[in-house]
Measured scan of single mutants.
Amino acid sequence: DDVELRDGDWRVELKDADEEILRAVEEAIKNGASEQELRELAERLIR
């Protein structure tokens, strides 16, 4: 699993992620995405 989400800690570690993925995830976090939404976003972007 390349995506690590810690309970109560919104730092997201994406291994080997490019800047576009990181920006998309950071934007989702700023917009108040839930953990499930972040997982789905990350899975779509990593593929």
Rank of each mutant, 00 (worst) to 15 (best):
A42Y: 15
E35Y: 12
D2M: 11
V12I: 08
D2Q: 11
Q36M: 14
R6T: 13
Q36D: 11
R39Q: 10
R23F: 09
K30P: 00
E37S: 03
R6F: 14
D7M: 07
A28H: 03
L5N: 13
W10P: 02
L14N: 01
I46S: 06
R11Q: 06
D7L: 11
L22Y: 08
I21R: 01
A42P: 00
G8R: 12
E43H: 15
L45I: 04
N31V: 02
A33D: 01
R47C: 07
D18N: 06
D7E: 05
D18H: 10
N31P: 00
I29M: 14
R47F: 13
N31A: 06
A17I: 08
W10Y: 04
E37H: 04
R44C: 04
A17N: 03
L41P: 00
D2E: 11
N31H: 08
D18L: 08
E26Q: 05
R11M: 13
D9M: 05
V25G: 00
S34N: 07
L22V: 12
D16G: 13
E19C: 12
E37L: 03
D2W: 10
E13Y: 15
L41M: 06
K15M: 12
V25F: 15
L41H: 00
R44F: 13
D18I: 06
A17V: 13
R23M: 08
R11C: 06
D9Q: 08
I29F: 14
V25A: 00
E40D: 08
G8M: 14
V12E: 15
V25W: 07
R47Q: 15
L45T: 01
D1S: 14
Q36Y: 13
I46P: 01
L41D: 00
E13N: 15
V3Y: 14
E26A: 12
L22N: 04
L45S: 01
L38N: 00
K30W: 09
K30D: 03
I29N: 04
L14G: 01
R44I: 02
E19F: 07
K15R: 11
K30E: 05
A24W: 09
E27L: 14
G32I: 00
I21N: 01
L45Q: 01
L41N: 00
D2H: 12
L38D: 00
E26G: 09
D9S: 07
A24S: 06
G8C: 07
E37W: 05
R39W: 12
E40S: 10
S34T: 09
A17M: 14
L22C: 02
W10S: 03
W10N: 02
D7T: 10
E20I: 10
R39K: 11
A42F: 15
R39T: 02
E26L: 15
I29L: 13
K15F: 10
E20P: 05
E40M: 10
A28Q: 01
L38H: 00
A33P: 00
A42H: 06
E20A: 14
E26W: 15
G8F: 15
E27W: 13
G8I: 14
G32N: 04
E35M: 10
V25Q: 00
E27C: 09
G8L: 12
D7K: 07
R39G: 01
E20F: 15
L5P: 10
A24T: 07
R39L: 06
I46L: 15
D1M: 11
K15H: 06
V3L: 07
V3C: 03
R47G: 11
G32P: 00
E37D: 04
A42C: 09
R11F: 13
A33K: 06
E43L: 15
E40N: 08
N31K: 11
E35P: 06
R23Y: 08
L14Y: 08
A17D: 03
R47D: 06
R23A: 09
L22M: 11
V12Q: 05
A17H: 07
A28Y: 06
I21H: 02
D1I: 10
E19M: 08
L45D: 01
R11A: 07
E4G: 13
E26K: 09
E26D: 05
A24D: 01
I46W: 11
S34K: 04
R23P: 00
E40R: 12
K30C: 03
L5Q: 10
I46M: 15
E27S: 08
V3W: 14
R23E: 03
R23W: 12
E35V: 09
R39A: 05
V12N: 04
D18W: 06
G32Y: 01
V3T: 13
A33Q: 03
I46A: 05
R44T: 05
K30L: 09
D1W: 13
V25R: 00
K15A: 08
E37N: 03
E40Q: 13
E13R: 14
E37I: 03
L22W: 15
D9I: 05
S34Y: 01
I46E: 01
E43D: 08
R47Y: 12
K15P: 02
E26T: 09
L45H: 02
E13Q: 09
D16I: 10
D2A: 11
E13M: 15
A42V: 15
A28I: 01
K15Q: 04
D18V: 09
V3P: 04
N31M: 12
D9N: 09
R23I: 05
S34H: 02
D9K: 06
E19K: 07
W10V: 03
V12S: 12
S34E: 02
Q36S: 09
E40P: 00
G8S: 09
G8N: 13
E26M: 14
E35F: 08
K15W: 09
R39D: 01
R39P: 00
S34R: 02
A42M: 15
L14S: 01
D1L: 12
I21V: 10
E26R: 14
E35R: 06
A33C: 03
A24P: 00
A33F: 12
Q36P: 03
A28R: 01
V3S: 11
E20L: 12
E4R: 06
E4M: 10
D16W: 12
E19I: 14
V25T: 01
L38Q: 03
V3E: 10
A33N: 02
I29E: 14
E37K: 03
A42L: 14
V25L: 12
V25D: 00
A28M: 06
E26C: 08
R6H: 06
D9P: 03
L38W: 15
V12G: 08
A24N: 03
E27G: 04
E19Q: 11
L38K: 00
R39Y: 05
R11E: 04
A33M: 13
R44P: 00
E19T: 07
L45M: 06
E37V: 04
E27K: 06
D2R: 10
L38T: 03
K15V: 11
A28T: 00
S34M: 02
D16K: 10
E40I: 13
E19G: 08
E26P: 00
